[in-house]
Design a binder for these strands. Structure first.
Length: 270
DNA sequence: AGGTTGACCTGGACGC
DNA sequence: TGCGTCCAGGTCAACC
């Protein structure tokens, strides 16, 4: 489900509702494979911890915690279908709930994930969480251009490579390429500086608009309060195969690149 | 080393 | 109704 705008929206929601909360205890479901930290240790570390804040890094939600043993990070990746919800103790428990953190206030943070591609990990000192890729928002156009110079792969695949840029997924890759007027199958290394600058600007705009709209709810994404996003109403190519381009009327085409579906307008994108 | 492919999972939409 | 097929917002390990 979640790319940068969705994860940003969820992290902001968690921060608004749970900053300064204290975790009393953690319940875990039977599917512990998605835990990168052993269940017993995760329960021990989170139990009694105080939440300083939640924020986003790439597609990860990072909780900064204060514990008796010092500063700890609680890192959640939502995979394809993960949800982080703030609930009340007597709210009905959704199917595929894998973790519930009960707060002193009575509220709960619940992690729900039908496909179980999500991941949960604790970083205790001296380990600190960090990601390889560059944040696309505000990274600067020169750094951005440099990422793609030597990449002999379609620009679509390069945008999805999280060790280059972190946070862009299938929706925002397609939408940004449309806005930049670039076909997804173009080789990254063959794009001109001017084209890469255009792509950089397009990404800034698309991501900012998507965050402002609270993300895209294509099937099941919801924010920390359980509400859907609105940016899917502004998609211009993603999952619009066969529908007319909103700029020129040409039918949107769907092709496969690197095993992922890609949507583009054959007239507007060169 | 960089690039590509299939595996990991469940569920919803669709066709017969 | 039921069953099979295809598709899905993301990584990774295993190959070339």
């Amino acid at each position: 489900m979640p790319e940068l705008p969705e994860v940003e929206t969820i992290a902001r929601g968690l921060n608004a509702q749970l900053a300064a909360a204290r975790i009393l205890e953690v319940w875990l479901g039977p599917h512990t494979k998605l835990l990168q930290t052993p269940p017993a240790r995760l329960k021990r570390v989170l139990g009694g911890a105080r939440i300083a804040n939640f924020h986003r890094e790439g597609k990860h939600i990072v909780g900064e915690l204060e514990t008796a043993k010092g500063a700890v990070q609680w890192v959640i990746h939502l995979g394809m279908t993960g949800r982080c919800l703030v609930a009340k103790a007597d709210d009905e428990r959704a199917p595929h709930t894998h973790l519930i953190a009960r707060m002193e206030s009575g509220r709960e943070l619940r992690f729900v994930d039908p496909r179980r591609f999500g991941k949960i990990e604790i970083f205790e000192p001296p380990r600190r969480f960090h990601i390889a890729g560059i944040e696309p928002l505000g990274c600067g156009v020169e750094r951005f251009v440099e990422l793609f110079r030597a990449r002999r792969t379609p620009i679509k695949s390069a945008l999805l490579n999280q060790s280059l840029l972190t946070g862009i997924g299938n929706i925002y890759a397609d939408e940004s390429l449309f806005r930049a007027g670039l076909r997804p199958q173009r080789l990254a290394a063959r794009l001109t500086r001017v084209e890469l600058r255009r792509l950089y600007e397009s990404i800034q705009i698309v991501l900012a608009e998507a965050i402002a709209a609270g993300g895209s709810s294509v099937s099941d994404y919801v924010n920390a309060s359980g509400s859907r996003g609105l940016f899917q109403l502004q998609h211009r190519v993603y999952r619009r195969t066969g529908e007319p381009c909103l700029d020129c009327g040409t039918k949107i085409v769907r092709i496969e690149i690197g095993g992922r579906s890609s949507h583009y307008c054959p007239h507007c994108q060169k």
